[in-house]
Amino acid sequence: MSRTQKLFTYSALSIWAFVAIFPIWTLIVNSFKPQKEIFSNPFGLPQNFTLEGYKAVWLKGNFGTYFLNTIYVTVISLALIIFFGSLAAYALAKWNSKSSTALYVFFIAGLMIPIRLGTIDLVRLMQFLNLQDTIWSLIPVYVAMGMPISIFILTAFVKNLPREMFDAAKVDGASEWRIYLQIVVPLLRPAIATVAIFNMMKIWNDFWFPLVFIRAEESRTVALGVSLLFGQYRTDWTRALSTLSLAAIPILILYILLSREFIKGLTAGAVKG
């Protein structure tokens, strides 16, 4: 790299890094300031440090419940996505027949069609199943939504595993179920991590389905709670910013810890295709 190239690269990237980080920085520092200081000192570190916003939001907003609900929904959905997805992927990769090709295409078609377009039917279905207003209405929808990308990534991965491994186990008389559990799942681990990260972000951040399915206080997720609290606190900036920070900080910490896997996970789905 020549000197001018280097200068250009660093300055262009630094400008965007600033643009990307600056709003997040103001969000977090200002959530620790009283309203007055937010306007007098909008960009610096807090001088009159306060936790008033967080206290108010946490106590009034039942944020603990929102977090627990979101964690339940995300964890249960992810576990089911990975279990159902890897079972199906193993079958699709190993079963050579016309039906398996057709099923694969049927699953993959879901990559391009947003499940939201079926919302009206889903609302009626949840009413029929008596699940509306509970977190259980979200889980099956998220699992269904996660199937296409998971089957896409996992099937490609199983197909790339060396054939001899399965053949040797077969000769030893192992059942397909045992091969799946003892050989396929351990080998799939990196691909499973990709699938988990990809789906986790979508599920954790989803706002549409909680908005449509859930009204009850005790079933709200973080995204839904944030939207209702933010509406109330629109003019109280300390509280408004505390609300947003509470939703943003856990994800940011997780991202900083796992950024490499995050980026790998997001590219794996799209670039291989």
Binding site: F84, A88, G118, D121, L122, M145, M147
Partner: peptide
């Protein structure tokens, strides 16, 4: 092996979209 994935995908995604 395919049944669980297929069922949930059919009931909660494909069928609502078509219906």
């Amino acid at each position: 092996f395919l049944l669980p994935a297929l069922l949930i995908y059919l009931v909660f995604m494909a069928a609502p979209l078509l219906d």
